[in-house]
Design a protein around this nucleic acid. Structure first.
Length: 500
RNA sequence: GGGCCGGUAGCUCAGUGGUAGAGCAUCGCACUUUUAAUGCGGUGGUCGUGGGUUCGAUCCCCACCCGGCUCACCA
């Protein structure tokens, strides 16, 4: 809570002085003819002569971000949250009351302005005020105008302050909105139906992660915040919805980092009669289209590098990539077959100096080696495909190789962006996979998948062959806005509770 | 959870074992086209919190709180 310092006392005193003038301190309404953004869009580029010949009258409103005062002539800068415009306040152009109101304004107050447009000597679009209406008080001083808000903690905890004083921050969230819109446009155009499935689930399935636990009182029932919508979306495939997608939050009770927020937004889409190779092509089309819609180009700058979302993306088979990089690092030819045997895979990890858990089978080791050897280096969009079955309990095996599933992950900017596979639709095999996961769980893997009997039963009714994919929206927005932390693309990232 | 860095005025930051500093903001005065307006003068601080060492701690030590980066886990 704000302390009782002079700055606060002065602002409250100004508010009381306005009350003594008979001004409504919290008026309900201000009828405006234009937003600031519309004024700037419509007139920002027009030459002085054209503008002044027309004598454009306007009524607009916004928050005061600057006051430059010269006694009887004053300049305000007001913002509608997206754009800013200057207001010229002359004592002899305003009713007396309005000028008295003006003299009681503080930075951050909301005002309504009526007047006509002109350009100053320095050619800045300006409203010559003929009326000034007080709309709301800012009782707390705003961050400094030049350096802005540098304290990242306050930027995240008090996002409204960040949005007031950091225009770039607002642009990130506009880009986020355009990203979501572009994805929906892309999928809607291909006949996908947007659906919503449970966020509270009796079994937290569809991914390998620890869930948040909650409880429903009336049903006396343990529920989990979902870690993925996957199993519900595939139930819809069983039900005959051939193309569905959901864009919504997932919750994972894991660590927090620049790439992880406990709640994050995921796109998942499922397409019947498709498979993972088709999804690679579709992903290339989707991301290049989204990048163009959001940034105007399929070449985006991220962390000083140019990332190209122009198709085609690079493709790497996982075991081949691991064997190749391992060979390079240890100076002898490593065969892919070494990754299929637990003893030789462990030996390889040891030689590479990569730590692995004792319980890991060859598939988990391969995936761990891949992440250690490749993930950071994959700055340009790259499909990594054909994963070990061991780490993919919901994916369909390759017909020619049961240890390998038809799955890919897309990497870009040095992190995982998407995950997709041909969906396993054999209920007997699905049951075996769940049982394998239960065994992992017994061995202490808290992230292993739980048994979901209801899902297996749904598969018994028959699910068409299908491909499905998840795309991390926050990370995609990071790439499209050159944001280095996921917290910069989430309006209110989770922060530790603060002792007040 | 481990490692590293940080927390000083409303904001952005300097700084010192001996009365706490600047710029912006704010207040006063001057100024009718400025734009980081300008000039002059003022106000403003539990130096993150709690202990300890010391004649004396914002500074040194310890613990804790909060944050950032990073490693591990994960998407």
């Amino acid at each position: 809570m704000p302390q009782d310092n002079d700055l606060l006392v002065q602002r409250r005193a100004n508010l009381e002085a306005l009350a003594r003038l008979g001004v409504d301190l919290y008026p309900r309404q201000f009828d405006r003819t234009d937003t600031v953004t519309r004024l700037v869009e419509a007139h920002g580029e027009r030459p002085k002569e054209a503008l002044e010949a027309e004598r454009v009258e306007t009524r607009t409103s916004g928050r005061i971000l600057a006051i430059r005062s010269f006694g009887k002539a004053n300049f305000l800068v007001i913002s509608d949250g997206r754009s800013r415009v200057q207001v010229y306040v002359r004592k002899d152009s305003l009713p007396d009351l309005d000028f008295q109101v003006f003299s009681l304004l503080d930075l951050g107050d909301f005002v309504g302005v009526g007047g006509h447009l002109f350009r100053t000597k320095t050619n800045e679009l300006t409203i010559w005020a003929s009326s000034l209406t007080f709309l709301a008080k800012c009782l707390v001083p705003l961050p400094e105008k030049w350096h802005g808000l540098q304290d990242v903690e306050i930027r995240y905890r008090q996002r409204y302050l960040d949005l007031i004083v950091t225009p770039e921050s607002g642009r990130v969230f506009e880009a986020r909105s355009r990203t979501l819109k572009a994805i929906r446009t892309f999928l809607d155009a291909r006949g996908f139906l947007e659906v919503e499935t449970p966020m509270m689930q009796p079994v937290a399935g569809g991914a390998l992660a620890r869930p948040f636990v909650t409880h429903h009182n009336a049903l006396d029932m343990t529920l989990y915040l979902r870690i993925a919508p996957e199993l519900y979306l595939k139930r819809l495939l069983v039900g005959g919805m051939e193309r569905v997608y959901e864009i919504n939050r997932n919750f994972r009770n894991e660590g927090i980092s620049t790439q992880h927020n406990p709640e994050f937004t995921m796109l998942e889409f499922y397409q019947a009669y498709s498979h993972y190779l088709e999804l690679m092509t579709m992903t290339e089309e989707m991301l290049s289209e989204v990048a163009r819609a959001v940034t105007g180009s399929d070449q985006v700058t991220f962390g000083g590098e140019t990332i190209s979302f122009a198709a085609p993306f690079r493709r790497l088979r996982m075991r081949e990539a691991v064997a190749e990089e391992a060979s390079r690092r240890i100076g002898r030819g490593v065969a892919e077959s070494e990754l299929r045997d637990r003893a030789s895979a462990r030996d390889l990890a040891r030689r590479l100096g990569i730590e692995i858990d004792p319980g890991m089978g060859p598939g988990k080791i391969t995936a761990a080696l891949f992440e250690a050897l490749w993930e950071r280096a994959l700055v340009q969009p790259t499909f990594v495909y054909d994963f070990p079955t061991e780490v993919s309990p919901l994916s369909k095996q390759r017909a020619d190789d049961p240890d390998t599933v038809e799955r890919f992950e897309l990497y870009a900017g040095g992190f995982e962006l998407a995950n997709a596979f041909s969906e396993l639709n054999d209920p007997a095999e699905q049951r075996r996979r769940f049982e394998q996961q239960l065994a992992e769980r017994q061995k202490g893997d808290a992230e292993a998948h739980e048994m979901d009997e209801d899902y297996v039963r749904a598969l018994e009714y028959g699910m068409p062959p299908a491909g499905g994919e998840g795309v991390g929206i926050d990370r995609l927005v990071m790439l499209l806005t050159d944001s280095r932390s996921i917290r910069d693309v989430i309006l209110f990232p989770l922060m530790r509770a603060r002792k007040e």
